[in-house]
Design a protein around this nucleic acid. Sequence first.
DNA 1: TTTCTCTATGACTATTTAGTGATATTGAGT
DNA 2: ACTCAATATCACTAAATAGTCATAGAGAAA
Lengths: 121, 121
Amino acid sequence: MAAGSSRSGVLAQVAQYFKVLSEVSRLQLLCELGAGAKNVTELLAATGMGQANVSKHLKILSDAGMVSRHPKGVSVYYQLSDPACLRLCQVVCQQLLNQHQRQSQTLEQLSSLQQLGANPD
Amino acid sequence: MAAGSSRSGVLAQVAQYFKVLSEVSRLQLLCELGAGAKNVTELLAATGMGQANVSKHLKILSDAGMVSRHPKGVSVYYQLSDPACLRLCQVVCQQLLNQHQRQSQTLEQLSSLQQLGANPD
DNA sequence: TTTCTCTATGACTATTTAGTGATATTGAGT
DNA sequence: ACTCAATATCACTAAATAGTCATAGAGAAA
């Protein structure tokens, strides 16, 4: 029953992985960590998020294996431990760019027809 | 204000793309369509989901540009229009496999220590 | 037209979860 | 010991959403 071996269990794991990446706050944190390890205070300053919120999201990212936790004295440093997730973001960005370009082309073709307001339906 | 040009707007779009991929039902539909175009009735039979539910998820996938809609008489066929999203799923599967293998290695190392029940903490 | 099938949509419930404030915990310095 | 600063966790509210039932609409066949 523990979503870990059957075929639908694989889909559940994939869905869970994507769900972790489906919040702006967590993507912000991953982007910040993409530039190098940071502690929680630095992440607070960089993102403007609340402290409890950052801790909660870092725990989610950590549980997903995307970042690793490194206590250093009284503060805790986090760093990316899963380079794949940033590459995934890049792939999605590229895909969104492609969609946007296709939409722009369609709009240009439509506007070049110069019949937009002339439909006597 | 329409999440379409600023830096945080890009993150919002990426998060939205991942959110579409973060539900098992939608991944099921994408997998089915990966084998070729299907109409709604065929998808109902293939997935065991409810009809209203399938229609709703297909609309979400369609709005995201991942599938395209093709009415054919009284039924409607859907097909993948964004090959990238299946490749993303494959990347995530591979990543989950890597994680699982690392965990297995760690467990093997721990078990080979043969000290698991002997911790007098 | 009437009737049937197929698909889409509206209303509703239940679950999940992001964000926040308060509090607990931990480690360093006095 | 006490105090301060950094982080984690608990309790709570508000918002989003998956699933379901009922219903509407659209096309085919009688």
